[in-house]
Nucleic acid binder design. Structure first.
Length: 504
RNA sequence: CGGGGCGUAGCUCAGCCUGGUAGAGCGCUUGCUUUGGGAGCAAGAAGUCGUCAGUUCGAAUCUGGCCGCCCCGACCA
């Protein structure tokens, strides 16, 4: 029996529920028995591995090296930077004991009782500025030790009130870059450089267009001087922060005592930065590209870019078909896309063709290739693109397919970016008045990104956030947002429009 | 931490009001028929009904405590 779409409910009907169903249907992750923590399954983790691999290349290209720091941070470290401490205080898991004692119960079972109380509790890192800062303080003696350009791939824990698979989990995977520099100019340049790396990665690897910009003081990372952000729009028109790069000034250097002897023979505090992207990218990708049949993986990062489905209607031709599929896969794997060998999977499982096909649709494989006895005779393959409808199938000569496959993948990559960009642009509006603004974000309003002239205070910004659940996502860097105007709330003059939106 | 809801098979849930000893769909196993677009039929495996106590001849069902989870708010990548 055919269904209208593979995922129910549709995006239109109930977006949050659609999201959860897609994650499940694509078999990317599941909720675990640990509150707020997820099990990332192979299809989800495969995507993360590609994100990781490709980001890591960019980090290395820009001069960074990887290192690893402890999961546990002495509680006192978090007390060193007041703003930072306050920012994370409400979401820290704390380790207080280091051993268990077995206690026999009357019913024969054993209870394990924590004992060996720690003198000083440890906090499971919510982020590593403080402990990496302490290491930097030891490592930096002279201006010759700078810049120090370190990245860490790690898990962190933030005890969030309301977890959601990939978007907000108590434990998540990420990378955190931490750098120390001799001068403010250098550190600011580093912050901007990584911001550009993130912009480029989202656009060219995940096919997600973003608005690069700066956070307002209210939205800044706790303890930062400036927070640069990349804001994406997903299909329910909400904004999602996909990556941030912070210029930390000398705040953390002073807290951790990162000092060096400068060229002028005076002791100076270093200027530090930090920047991160997390498994939230996976949720962003799903919400940006998915349709009512499930995930759509951009080819650059898809765990498998091509899945070959052997069509074996008769047992006596089965082996021949499977062999031909394996041979095709081998030929494809010799080609490369985005600088990596093609990732090709032959699905030989003994399942019904239709069911198998839909499984890969839901997982979002960019290209599905069917090959059966008839195709072997006619030297052709059936090609299905995930970015087109589930029924779109084209029979093409095998040689042509082999010749054009990387272009085809690029075409899919481009079409996803184009589609996402059109969606965003169609839902991004320049508004002038408070009335327009309120109507835009009203319950029945269109919603999206409102480009507004703004010259209000932090308190006025807060009030809008409280009253309407709308925040300034960023002050865009690009000149296309610069123009003379008047703040829609206060009427004060403004040089630039900022992006207001509801957000994840 | 406030407001609401829920714990029954691997998953989603019905049964509870009106107590009588365990159900459905999906998934799983086997067989047959199907197979170029989410198959059909048949047979089968699978649950100390979250937990502890109370009421009762008898509790998934009624009462109370405890534990856990989900949703809505405040917090957040």
């Amino acid at each position: 029996m055919s269904q209208a779409s593979a995922i129910s409910p549709t995006r239109e009907k109930d977006f949050p529920e659609w999201y959860q169903q897609v994650v499940r249907a694509a078999d990317m992750a599941e909720n675990s028995e640990v509150r707020g923590c997820m099990v990332i399954k192979p299809w989800g983790y495969g995507l993360w591995e590609n994100i990781q691999k490709q980001l890591d290349v960019k980090f290395k290209e820009t001069g960074h090296v990887n290192a690893y720091f402890p999961l546990l941070i002495p509680l006192s470290y978090l007390e060193k930077e007041a703003q930072h401490a306050e920012g994370f205080a409400t979401e820290c898991a704390v380790v207080t004991h280091h051993r268990l004692e077995a206690q026999k119960q009357p019913d024969g079972t054993t209870k394990m009782i924590p004992s060996g109380k720690l003198e000083e509790p440890y906090v499971i890192r919510p982020t590593s500025e403080t402990i990496i800062g302490a290491a930097f303080a030891r490592w930096v003696q002279s201006y010759r030790d700078l810049p120090l350009l370190i990245n860490q791939w790690a898990n962190v824990m933030r005890w969030e009130m309301r977890p959601r698979l990939f978007l907000r989990t108590a434990e998540f995977l990420w990378q955190e870059g931490h750098t120390a520099h001799e001068t403010e100019e250098e550190a600011v340049e580093e912050t901007k450089l990584m911001h550009r790396v993130y912009t480029d990665f989202l656009c060219n690897h995940l096919a997600i267009p973003v608005i690069p910009g700066v956070k307002t003081e209210n939205e800044r990372f706790p303890g930062a001087v400036d927070t640069y952000t990349v804001e994406a729009m997903v299909q329910d028109k909400k904004a999602i922060q996909a990556g941030t790069s912070h210029y930390l000034g000398q705040n953390f250097a002073k807290a951790a005592n990162i000092q060096f002897l400068g060229r002028d023979n005076t002791r100076q505090f270093a200027h530090t930065t930090s920047w991160g992207m997390s498994t939230r990218l996976i949720g962003t990708l799903i919400m940006a590209h998915g349709d009512d049949d499930g995930v759509i993986m951009p080819p650059r990062v898809a765990p498998s870019q091509i899945v070959i489905l052997p069509i074996t209607p008769k047992p006596d031709t089965r082996q021949e078909v499977v062999d031909a599929c394996e041979a095709l896969a081998k030929t494809l794997r010799a080609q490369s896309f985005g600088g990596e060998p093609l990732r090709v999977h032959v699905d030989k499982r003994d399942l019904q063709g239709g069911a198998k096909n839909w499984e890969w649709i839901k997982k979002g494989v960019p290209l599905r290739i069917e090959m059966g006895p008839r195709d072997i005779t006619s030297r052709s393959v059936a090609v299905c693109r995930r970015d087109l409808g589930p029924k779109a199938k084209e029979f093409v000569p095998k040689e042509d397919f082999l010749q054009n496959v990387t272009e085809l993948l690029q075409e899919i990559q481009d079409s996803l970016l184009k589609r996402a960009t059109e969606m965003r642009d169609a839902n991004m509006k320049k508004l002038e008045t408070l009335e327009e603004f309120q109507a835009f974000f009203a319950e029945e309003g269109p919603g999206g990104f409102a480009l507004m002239h703004w010259a209000g205070s932090n308190e006025e910004e807060d009030k809008i956030a409280k009253d309407m659940k709308v925040t300034i996502r960023c002050v865009p860097l690009s000149d296309e947002f610069a123009e003379e105007g008047k703040c829609f709330l206060t009427g004060k003059p403004s040089q630039k429009r900022v992006v207001f939106a509801k957000s994840y």
